[in-house]
């Protein structure tokens, strides 16, 4: 079988960390710096970083429509932290939303400033034992549409979810040595390749 190719949007943030995890799982990781590169990957990660900075670069370098198109083609997308902010349909506190790919309302910096950033063990749907999650100035999902599959909560707040081909997490799987959360995404990519072949 052809090696799966997963792209990481390479504008700003923890890019190499995702590439390392992708490769640990036996896939091929590609840093995406130009929109044309989206055509060569089977799935895409929008990494953690600063969502406002990443959005400016998305606009300036013509990524906006190609990213929407990537999603319209049902290719899997995984947004971590800032990436989750970028794919949400709605942002609380009346900020304009960005790509609007998943029916969730996200609150930015929802757990507070950096000194409130934390690690915690989570129960994640699809992962057998507890999962170490790293939250950094993290957002959470304030409201989710009923079509959203909730994968994890912390303190009664939704911190990981899935809708069709879109996966999101408030926390940073790429900062730990634990690849189980990324494996969930790799499985989504595998699944989507099967359906495209049929």
């Amino acid at each position: 079988m052809k090696k799966i190719k997963i792209g990481v949007l390479g504008l700003q943030g923890a890019i190499q960390e995702h590439i390392n995890q992708i490769e640990m799982l036996g896939c091929f990781g590609v840093i995406i710096k130009n929109p044309e590169q989206l055509e060569e990957v089977d799935g895409l990660i929008l990494p953690g970083g600063e969502s406002t900075a990443i959005r400016k670069l998305i606009d300036r370098y013509g990524f906006f429509d190609p990213l929407k198109q990537f999603s319209s083609n049902h290719k899997p997308i995984f947004g971590t932290c800032a990436g989750m902010v970028l794919v949400a349909k709605e942002l609380s506190e009346s900020q304009d939303s960005h790509l609007g790919l998943i029916d969730i309302c996200v609150k930015r910096n929802a757990f507070g400033r950096q000194k409130e950033s934390f690690e915690a063990e989570l129960t994640v749907k699809g992962i057998k034992t507890s999962y170490p999650a790293v939250f950094i100035r993290a957002p959470y999902i304030e409201r989710a549409n009923e079509n959203i599959e909730i994968l994890a909560t912390y303190d009664n707040q939704i911190v990981a979810a899935k809708q069709n081909h879109i996966l999101v997490s408030s926390f940073h799987p790429e900062l730990t040595g634990d690849t189980r959360f990324l494996q969930l995404f790799v499985d989504m990519v595998k699944e989507s390749l099967k359906t495209t072949v049929n």
Binding site: L11, G49, Q114, F118, A120, E121, V134, R137
Partner: peptide, 20 residues
């Protein structure tokens, strides 16, 4: 339990700033 100010959380914050 919430663990604040761990090494991974403190270093991770800087990792999010990379390329910026």
């Amino acid at each position: 339990e919430r663990q604040l100010g761990t090494e991974i959380v403190k270093r991770g914050m800087a990792q999010m700033q990379k390329g910026g």
